Simulated assay, not measured.
Amino acid sequence: MDDKLRERLRTAAEAHRPDRERMLARVERGMAEGPSARTPPGPLPLLRVAGATVAVCGVLAVGAYAVTSAGGGQTRGGQVAASPVPSASAPAVPGRVPELRTEDGPLWAAGAVDPHSNAYWAQSNVTLRTTQPLSSLTVELRIAQTGGVNTTGSWRSLPERDFTVSAQQKGGFLVYRWTLKPGRTVPVGTHMFAGQYNHAEGDRRADGDYFTANAARSTGQRVSVGDDFTSDH
């Protein structure tokens, strides 16, 4: 009879997962109250002891589980399964380079990483050629944030006073923007816009870099071109 009771207690303790604080409170309250005057004779006192024992076993089981969890894993065959170590955060991956065309009407464009770039610094060149004067022009150069990409300046071959220039981190890119001021004109010819930047040490890939140029002819007709930096030009 004792063996069967012990087996039942052991089985119940292994299967039960009570709330630890609640079970401790129930055990302490039962010990403080003592035997009830209404408790009838017979096997019920034994069941009461058994219930208290199950509660204590459950509390011990919960305590062991809590200690194991605090150690960073579950015990399996006497070994502790270590929690997975989070991987180092990687730079945000920008979106896919859009479909671009390098020629539209009188406007042609190409993009290339300057050959004087090195393991810490780079310059991306945008070359535009127009066979007609342009009454408006916005050139936007996007350098993918591959790690440590920060602006160090920019320039253009056209007069500085003719353009407003900005550089900002946006959407996983360092974005340069040159906008022709109202009333100014881009003459016929070949012109260059360049963005300069630091980057994480190493041979930086320019797969995610690209630029766009949107312009209007003197007739008002709009044209747009663009290119990426993965091809030799």
Rank of each mutant, 00 (worst) to 15 (best):
E14A: 12
V165H: 04
K4W: 13
P115M: 13
T212A: 10
A216F: 05
S87P: 07
M192I: 14
P91M: 02
A81W: 14
D162W: 02
R20C: 09
A66R: 14
R6P: 03
V80W: 13
E103Q: 09
G30C: 11
P40S: 04
V93P: 01
W108K: 10
V62H: 08
T53V: 14
S224M: 09
W121F: 03
F173P: 00
A37R: 10
Y210C: 03
T130W: 03
P40H: 05
A13G: 09
W108D: 12
G58W: 00
L128I: 07
A88T: 04
S117P: 07
Y65M: 11
G77L: 08
N125Y: 10
T230I: 07
M23P: 01
L158E: 05
A119M: 10
D227G: 01
L180P: 01
E201D: 13
W178F: 15
R8W: 07
S231N: 09
Q74W: 10
P18F: 04
V93A: 14
G172Y: 01
P133Q: 08
V139R: 00
G183T: 00
A213K: 00
P98D: 06
P45Y: 13
V113K: 03
L174A: 03
Q123A: 15
V186H: 02
Y176N: 01
S87Y: 09
K4I: 14
G42D: 03
L141T: 07
A25R: 14
